[in-house]
């Protein structure tokens, strides 16, 4: 039995990085050679090393977003060679290792690009639009302490599993970055579906989907044209079938709220 040992041959690459001093500044690509790259290094560790080199030389290091470095916090957000989170499948940028590259590669590193995600500096973008969408309806209104016993609300295992699939979204924004139209449909679909699949989420189901879609539209995202670039780059492999589900939920909510009798309590309607 031959053990699979990684080749530890060090190699060189060139990073072609988008540098932009601030939100209003003009940006441009700058090339940084990186030698002695260890294939076991993570891509972000390579940026760490390049940054230390820049610092010592008296240059400003590349600003980039990162935190947990294990693919769950959703902070890291580079577009690498045109693909959000780089060449891997089902991983975030922080889970990309240099063994995915070869000697002499020129690696283009850009921020996630969308009008709704303005660039703050270099590779760092502002994804607050996602928070706004969540604030519009991405919750179940249950005051702390007001909850019934957890087993008082049975949830079919299939629904719970599917809700978990949707809930695994890390809010990184790669779906938006990958979409040819910078649409946030996969993100919104995942959130709406998580709650919509659970019995706890039913009372606010219509209100939620209408409010979240409206907020999404106001944030300046593009429209879904069913090309599924989003799910292709999703680090959690969330399926675009949730988008179909969102479409259905939305139209149902639209008609349901519209043709409901109007309550004397006011409100009602869509």
């Amino acid at each position: 039995m031959v053990a699979e040992k990684p080749s530890k041959k060090l190699f060189s690459v060139t990073l072609r990085v988008w540098r932009q001093a601030g939100p209003a500044a003009a940006g441009k690509f700058v090339e940084y050679p990186a030698a002695n790259v260890n294939p076991d290094m993570s891509f972000l560790e390579l940026i760490d090393v390049v940054n230390d080199g820049l610092t010592v030389k008296g240059d400003e290091p590349i600003a980039f977003a990162h935190d947990c470095r294990e693919g769950i916090c959703g902070t890291c957000s580079c577009t690498i060679n045109g693909k959000p989170h780089g060449p891997g499948h089902g991983i975030a940028t922080c889970q990309l290792y240099m063994r995915s590259f070869q000697e002499g590669d020129v690696i283009t590193v850009e921020p996630f690009r969308a009008k709704a995600f303005p660039i703050q500096r270099d590779l760092v973008t502002d994804r607050a639009a996602f928070d706004k969408i969540q604030q519009a309806g991405g919750f179940i209104s249950v005051r702390t302490g007001a909850a019934p016993d957890a087993n008082a609300i049975p949830v079919p295992k299939e629904d719970a599993d599917l809700a978990m699939d949707a809930a695994s979204c890390i809010g990184c924004g790669a779906c938006v970055a990958a979409c040819k139209n910078a649409s946030a449909m996969l993100f919104v679909a995942a959130k709406v579906s998580q709650f919509g699949l659970l019995p706890q989420g039913q009372p606010e189901r219509d209100r939620r989907v209408l409010a979240m879609v409206q907020t999404m539209d106001e944030a300046g995202f593009g429209n879904c044209t069913n090309q599924y670039e989003c799910s292709a780059v999703c680090p959690k492999n969330i399926t675009h079938d949730f988008i179909a589900r969102l479409n259905r939920d939305y139209v149902a909510a639209l008609f349901r709220t519209r043709f409901q009798p109007v309550s004397n309590a006011g409100g009602g309607g869509g």
């Binding site: 045109g82 693909k83 690009r113 990958a178 139209n181 995202f221 593009g222 429209n223 599924y228 292709a232």
Partner: peptide
């Protein structure tokens, strides 16, 4: 929705 395009064009599927 995307005023500045990518430096590298990539299409996954």
């Amino acid at each position: 929705a995307r005023p500045t395009g990518y430096g590298v064009d990539h299409t996954s599927r």
